[in-house]
Design a protein around this nucleic acid. Structure first.
Lengths: 246, 246
DNA sequence: TCTAATAAATGAATGCCGTTCATTTAGTGG
DNA sequence: CCACTAAATGAACGGCATTCATTTATTAGA
């Protein structure tokens, strides 16, 4: 329930991580009691969490590890966030700012959606543990997320979408994107049926013939199987929704 | 690494939970050492896990709670499963048998896909914590899952799909289904922008106009916003993929 | 300017969780 | 018949998020 002074999370967050960088070994023990200058803030916590995630993955993101990264006692974190879920929320909102919405407003609607969807998928394919968080997160608490929705909504409206069709279309696209992000992380041999292969002839045959490499990644379609599925599904959705426009 | 005798998981699993039902209070202490008749098996563990999930949710599914449900010490579970992840896997595969694939083989391909997709989504909307498990699960370890893929693959093949297009299409549909399952669980007011409403006019307007209740759920489309988005996306995918057929 | 309230840190403690291990007992194969 | 293995108990472990009492510094108000 405590709130820091630099609370407005939409701001550029001037002083990200202060003076002494996190990792340095020779830092001497800090005494108990409030320090002269605050050590922690939300921007610093977010940056440290991302650093930790990139280095050790989501299993490595513990409150203890995060505290160590920031050279702080674990309990100190709770002066700035209410829970670990709160930390994930900060990270999630930061990642949303990495999603490319630049296509909206410049070129064709189809191209804008393609750019947006591919970058959205790529960002969260590297952060699938956040997907359950996003899917349930009220946008009020996530300014970057809200900003993305605003740009996308405007893009759809300008492209001639009837207002009441915009949200369902965006939600459907997002659902496809989140599911596809998981797909990227799946092991290559996930569909190998092994010993039961002869009892599943149709499936086995389908898997085998889809695995034949298409070496020419024409246009947006990239190399891996997950990319092919994403490409096809995305084009189907774009075609289907594109027809709705006034 | 340990394996029980009744290992072939595809079998009907005759003796689900044995004699003494789980919850009864007056059960006297069981002595240490191997009991005359085995208390646990995979089918029983699966059933107890599902019961627990239905009653307490996924937060309530702990190895300790599962053990108590089965009137057993927690460590006993590890004679039958290697880890909690293993339990989730058993549950996941069981749920797959609840997905309705009956449409494939009888009527039109489009209708079969609709029936399959809606039931698939509904099953996993109630079990979203399993989605990260599924997305990465090798089908070898999941006979029910494999059976579902076989039926669906055959359905696509019979409908005239070129073999190499089947898996990408199914994967794309599944991705959409998983993402949409999350969407079902989202709070109704997730898009309420609250205090920042005036800084996001397009988004706010779109949310407002999509929220106007459509009281007539024509055909497959059901009432809630998540259903509308799922309906539209699914129809777009069906239309897009349907065009591929020979 | 003094002072009470508040903010921000430490460090100890809590309870739960998944999992492991030594031990005990009961069937099973050679 | 006997060694081996399977299946249970119960104690223990380390790691986790979180809470609380305490200390110190800053800030607001009389």
């Amino acid at each position: 329930m405590l709130e820091t002074t630099n609370e407005r999370a939409g701001m550029p967050a001037v002083s990200a991580t202060q003076g002494r960088p996190s990792g340095s070994a020779g830092t001497q023990r800090r005494k108990a009691g409030r320090p002269a200058a605050a050590v922690l803030d939300k921007a610093g916590i977010t940056a440290a969490a991302l650093e930790l995630i990139n280095r050790k993955g989501y299993d490595g993101l513990t409150m203890a590890a995060l505290a160590k990264e920031l050279d702080v006692a674990p309990s100190a974190l709770y002066n700035h966030v209410a829970s670990k879920q709160d930390v994930l929320l900060l990270v999630e909102d930061h990642l949303m700012s990495l999603v490319d919405v630049s296509g909206f407003g410049s070129g064709a609607w189809e191209d804008a959606v393609r750019t947006w969807a591919w970058s959205y998928r790529d960002v969260f394919a590297a952060h699938t543990p956040l997907i359950p968080v996003i899917a349930v997160l009220p946008v009020t608490d996530a300014p970057q997320t809200l900003a993305m929705y605003e740009t996308v909504s405007k893009g759809f409206a300008d492209a001639g979408f009837p207002q009441e069709h915009i949200i369902p279309a965006v939600v459907a696209l997002e659902s496809f994107i989140f599911g596809s992000a998981y797909d990227v992380t799946a092991p290559e041999d996930i569909f190998e049926s092994g010993s039961m292969a002869e009892s599943t002839p149709y499936f086995t045959a389908a898997v085998r013939s889809s695995a034949s490499r298409q070496d020419a990644p024409a246009g947006q379609e990239r190399g891996r199987p997950a990319d092919t599925a994403f490409h096809r599904g995305l084009e189907a959705l774009i075609a289907g929704f594109g027809a709705i426009r006034k």
